[in-house]
Design a binder for these strands. Structure first.
Lengths: 143, 143
DNA sequence: CTTTGCATGTCAGGACTTTGACATGAGTGA
DNA sequence: TCACTCATGTCAAAGTCCTGACATGCAAAG
């Protein structure tokens, strides 16, 4: 067994790419005053408004508690708004503010550039296959 | 733009798989009394002994400080050993103990099973291509 | 109607990780 | 020889995140 063997697993390379991606995103988002979890939260809200804290947490793969502090920070910055009282149940549906939408659009441009750079070695068909494979792998692990 | 668009990026699916993988590994390793970072550390040492703390940190994609506490915990558990004084420079080359090797082998079996389950939708050739693509993506992000 | 289960928001506490900083040792070039 | 650079280990402090727990509100089964 050579020294390379453990690094030659899909799991290890997955972690390596994810670490590099996270670092790249942190760097790019710093210019916008955002952290990566904050950006993910804005992105989720940009695609579907009225998401609750718990739904956002699942979408960002963090706990409700972690998303809660992210949400509070975004609210203090005036980027999102939540009703002070729940319209139904306990869920507080969150929305982007106007400045939140503007910041999201600006930040998204930089993040998309990173995504394109990361996948610049793949053509569109390959990228599509890769994404399908990744989706399948998630499902295989969750069952 | 539909609500699915942001989730349909390679970056998002990457994070999703990595989260599922981390959860699966945490669950499997708990039976061995190990955390995922601890296992990664043991695995790196199993393939190449005499690695320094800084080298292990880079291999596990964490900071030196984080790896340092991992190493101290492993040392307390008698799974690794470090010289109290540096043979050259400041680096303290770490080695697995006999019980560390035994635990690594037992834990590795479970982790490999997870890796196989994750990639069970791919044949050997596809898995190889996937790993090569991931390696390339890391390099594109780091440059 | 009651009760049971389930999901949500929230609090407290602890564990883990990082940022920033500093001193030490090795190698390099002037 | 000497200053400079680089990498390493280590300390302090802060931030981040999670585990565990609890109360509230809705829905479904009894």
């Amino acid at each position: 067994m050579t020294q390379e063997d453990a690094r030659r697993t899909v799991g290890y390379q997955l972690k390596r790419v994810q670490a590099a991606l996270r670092a790249a995103m942190d760097g790019a988002l710093r210019a916008h005053g955002l952290t990566t979890p904050q950006y993910v939260c804005l992105e989720l809200l940009g695609q579907q408004a009225r998401l609750s804290n718990a739904e956002l947490a699942r979408g960002a793969f963090v706990t409700r508690q972690s998303m809660n502090v992210v949400l509070h920070n975004l609210e203090e910055a005036g980027l999102v708004e939540r009703p002070s009282t729940a319209p139904t149940g306990r869920a507080l549906p969150t929305r982007l503010t106007a400045s939140g939408e503007r910041l999201l659009e600006a930040a998204r441009a930089d993040v998309m550039a990173i995504e394109r750079r990361m996948t610049s070695g793949l053509d569109r068909a390959q990228a599509q296959i890769l994404m399908t494979q990744l989706e399948h792998m998630s499902e295989l692990l969750s069952e």
